[in-house]
């Protein structure tokens, strides 16, 4: 299995764990991740304005590069995944964006959204398979009660992201089960943590995180799992509960965590 791999800026810095454990797990599962040269920041948020083209171009570059390599594109950061998938959807389905982006980009071949964008969770579920993954687990996380925290970017809007049921997802729960732990399902796992508002209004993000954490703890979670550095930041700021990147626990279960450090 070979994919182009887009780490994103945060994974090169504050969220190094998310990245290095992802690479270690991929190697352990026989997945080859190829990082393109000279990628740029995806912009962090998907530009909602129909007339915005420049903020989408960094994403288009990475997508077009993967297309040139003939690869599908994998990411692990929720935000990057969100931006790449939505920009790709525009390139495929919105003629105006497609035309204008191609005019700016001056690519060898026009890019029309042909690259498949996958979150690593989708690769684990649909390509590796959780049953196969389960067989590769050497340190099962037996006895741990883990709440998956999806947040907003991974799932919504459901018709574009198509990762899972946006209101009642299960991919991370299935992952937790495959790792030998017990998933804790709680209803606020797909509600927003407050995102970038925490820059100016920590009180508000605090209230939002409290509601999520209260729900998770109430249903018995001993720790939380996330795929997003921003969620991680907000949750950690307001919680005594340990919060991990899903790749870290995956690495632990696959027995590659220490080597990755």
């Amino acid at each position: 299995m070979k994919f182009s791999y887009y780490p994103g800026c945060t994974l090169k810095n504050k969220a190094k764990d998310l990245d290095r454990y992802a690479r270690a797990c991929a190697a352990a599962l026989g997945i080859e991740l190829i990082e393109p040269d000279d990628w740029q920041c995806c912009g962090g948020v998907y530009p909602l304005g129909k007339d915005e083209i420049a903020p989408k171009l960094a994403a288009v570059r990475v997508l077009a590069d993967a297309a040139e390599q003939g690869n599908q594109l994998v990411t692990v950061c929720s935000a990057c995944h969100h931006v790449l998938k939505r920009v790709n959807d525009d390139m495929k389905n919105d003629a105006d964006t497609r035309e204008r982006a191609n005019r700016y980009m001056d690519l060898q071949r026009p890019y029309t959204g042909q690259t498949g964008v996958l979150h690593l969770l989708e690769v684990l579920r649909d390509r590796v398979g959780f049953d196969t993954l389960k067989e590769k687990v050497v340190n099962p996380l037996t006895g741990k009660k883990i709440g998956a925290y999806y947040g907003c970017l991974l799932l919504r809007p459901g018709d574009v992201m198509t990762l899972d049921d946006p209101e009642n997802p299960r991919v991370m729960e299935d992952l937790i089960r495959a790792l030998g732990a017990e998933p804790v399902v709680y209803p606020y796992r797909n509600e927003c943590c407050g995102g970038y508002v925490s820059l100016g209004d920590k009180e508000l993000t605090g209230r939002m995180c409290d509601r999520i954490l209260e729900s998770a703890v109430g249903f018995g979670a001993q720790m939380l799992l996330t795929a997003c550095p921003l969620c991680m930041y907000n949750l950690r700021a307001h919680s005594d509960l340990p919060v991990y990147y899903f790749t870290e626990l995956l690495a632990e279960a696959l027995g590659v965590k220490e080597a990755a450090q």
Binding site: G8, C9, T10, N13, K14, A15, C41, G43, G44, V45, C77, A79, G195, Y196, S198, L199, P229, L230, M232, Y233, R236, A237
Partner: peptide, 9 residues
């Protein structure tokens, strides 16, 4: 701890 992603966003 503040991630780059937050500032960019």
């Amino acid at each position: 701890e503040l991630p780059q992603q937050l500032l960019v966003s």
